[in-house]
């Protein structure tokens, strides 16, 4: 028996919004430690890794490990039927071929359940090595989303250059070129407005704007985003989900042809 409850459907809606543009389907691996999903986008350029800890749920029970392959478009249709302040419970029997989403209104007067067929997905799991990154940048998630959106107008790719002084995002194309420089902040009132750079070695890397923009769909989940970079390895874009876990996107860099 598997049962996971969140007192507020908003978080689950936001999580799905953060992955459904990149992935058509995904396998939710459930164990007593929580729920994990790892999947590559169709073109194998990026990888999504979602971790939701069992202690972050309002109720969590998982008697046996189970993997639930879900069509994320179908899941989105179902979650659209939940009000933001509904309690959502995800339920499945052991070895079942369906999963049930139950939504309960605050006053308990409306209870709906939606059963969805599970899929057998033959997804490859990749081992992600522990890496000490040359540069780790923490910045407001809204600011990162804004920069990705702005620079995508000028080029298909953005160059991220990180030094001790700051981080610079650049794009150039037919129209011209754009550069956005962010300096590390000192003495900001609010932690969520801070820009923090931890640098061992400076890095310059090129990434596809399309994917960066897809990752920023996670912005409503977190005030801050963390970018981890080293030369010639995938960028990690991490959004923490308060008290529940995190979503990490890995993006292969563009390389000199």
């Amino acid at each position: 028996m598997f049962e996971a409850r969140l007192n507020n459907a908003t978080t689950l809606k936001k999580i799905l919004d953060a992955i459904k543009d990149l992935l058509n389907e995904g396998t939710f691996d459930c164990s007593d430690s929580g729920i994990q999903l790892q999947a590559m986008d169709n073109s194998h350029v990026s990888l999504v890794s979602l971790t939701l800890r069992s202690d972050g749920f309002d109720k969590f029970r998982c008697d046996r490990n189970l993997s639930m392959g879900m069509n994320l478009g179908s899941m989105a249709k179902i979650l659209k039927c939940a009000n933001n302040d509904d309690t959502v419970t995800i339920k499945a029997q052991d070895n079942a071929d369906t999963v049930t989403f139950m939504f309960e209104s605050q006053n308990q007067e409306k209870v709906s359940d939606y059963e969805m067929k599970l899929m057998n997905l033959d997804q490859e799991h990749l081992g992600i090595p522990e890496t000490d990154y040359s540069c780790v940048v923490r910045m407001p998630a809204m600011e990162f989303a804004r920069i990705c959106r702005d620079l995508a107008q000028f080029s298909e790719s953005v160059v991220i250059c990180c030094t001790k002084e700051g981080v610079k995002f650049s794009a150039s194309g037919d129209v011209g070129s754009a550069n956005v420089k962010l300096a590390q902040t000192f003495n900001v009132d609010k932690e969520e407005e801070a820009i923090v750079i931890e640098m061992q070695e400076p890095v310059v890397l090129t990434f596809a704007c399309r994917y960066l923009n897809a990752f920023t769909k996670a912005t409503p989940l977190s005030n801050q985003v963390q970018l981890s970079m080293s030369a010639d390895v995938p960028l990690v874009v991490e959004y923490r989900i308060a008290e529940l876990g995190h979503i990490r996107y890995y993006l292969a860099p563009k390389i000199e042809d």
Binding site: H44, G127, I255
Partner: peptide, 14 residues
């Protein structure tokens, strides 16, 4: 000119 890398070139299959 740059070309897009594939994520599977960086992480090994489990």
């Amino acid at each position: 000119k740059t070309k897009q890398g594939n994520i599977m070139n960086f992480f090994k299959k489990k």
